[in-house]
């Protein structure tokens, strides 16, 4: 949240919960962003994203949206949206913030030691944890010297497009890479048109952990994400040899806080989850609240 505040980006999270359930949640988790209550799913329906695969008589679940996120600019225009088929996966906060700020934001200051006539690359993982069900991004920043370019997909045989590749690992899933638009370059010889990146380029590869296939470190709390960045630089005259740079990140493999039904003993703060859930069922089933449970 500090990163959002520092960047001047507001965060709103809407669900079909009652305001008092949100109040309990906010208190239990010290929530500082805005939780919005849509108990009759009016906003969800007006957006056209009500999950119609859930029948209306399925009381606790009816009214849910297809889950996802919108990123809007200062004028309120949608600049990006994130919806996944598998609801168990959602986009991480860094990914949403990056979309709100645009690609330029992540380009770091030039490194001092690298000669300016070669491409230099910086690879990072956005965030220090990979909790189940939340994506993080591998972010590769290429600094491309004046007069040179990199290739984007698709590339003809014999050339290498700039890309982030993960090592073979069942425990890590990757998603559609986020890439800036390419320019086009027409070769004078063959007349082929190539997709090229000029200037600094930031590529992002969203990744998530694949729960059971995950190979964690011996104590079970960390996961290693490894792979390599590939690229090939060319100038107007010639292409240089393809290059690659391996990366390996060891991050905490946390679990997200799931629904809190318990009395709040231990790690999970209290928010009277079971009581709110009972009320949600009663309300949808059209039955009177059961006083003896209060």
């Amino acid at each position: 949240m500090d990163a959002y505040r520092a960047a001047g980006v507001r965060l709103y999270a809407l669900s079909y919960d009652e305001p008092d359930a949100l109040a309990d949640y906010a208190e239990a988790h010290d929530t500082t962003f805005t939780l919005l209550s849509d108990p009759d799913s009016e906003v969800i329906t007006s957006f056209g994203i009500l999950n119609t695969l859930i029948p209306p008589d399925d009381h606790p679940w009816y009214g849910l949206p297809f889950p996802g996120s919108y990123v809007i600019d200062a004028d309120g225009i949608v600049v990006a949206k994130f919806f996944e088929h598998n609801f168990a996966i959602r986009s991480g906060p860094e990914q949403l913030l990056a979309a709100a700020l645009g690609q330029e934001f992540e380009v770091p200051a030039p490194g001092g030691s690298e000669p300016a006539d070669r491409v230099s690359v910086d690879v990072r993982i956005d965030g220090d944890r990979l909790p189940m069900g939340v994506t993080r991004q591998i972010v590769a920043t290429f600094r491309v010297p004046q007069g040179q370019h990199l290739y984007g997909e698709p590339v003809p045989d014999g050339l290498v497009a700039a890309a982030i590749e993960l090592d073979d690992n069942d425990g890590i899933l990757s998603y559609e890479p986020v890439t800036p638009p390419t320019g086009s370059l027409t070769l004078s010889g063959s007349g082929d048109t190539l997709a090229v990146y000029e200037g600094d380029v930031v590529l992002r590869l969203p990744v998530a952990q694949n729960a059971r296939n995950m190979q964690k470190d011996d104590d079970g709390r960390f996961v290693t994400i490894s792979g390599q960045v590939r690229w090939q630089a060319c100038d107007d005259v010639e292409c240089f040899l393809p290059e690659s740079m391996p990366f390996s990140f060891r991050v905490e493999a946390g679990f997200p806080v799931l629904g809190d039904m318990g009395p709040g003993v231990g790690r999970v703060p209290a928010m009277n989850g079971a009581q709110h859930f009972q009320r949600l069922i009663d309300r949808r089933a059209g039955t009177e609240p059961r006083d003896e449970d209060q």
Binding site: Y12, A21, A74, G259
Partner: peptide, 26 residues
């Protein structure tokens, strides 16, 4: 919102960009 306040997102964000998340339940 969680404080019982009626929030109009476009007015409340006061000209700032925003992320709006639709999720299942708190």
């Amino acid at each position: 919102d969680q404080a019982g306040r009626l929030v109009d997102v476009h007015a409340d964000r006061a000209g700032q960009p925003a992320v709006v998340v639709f999720y299942r339940s708190a």
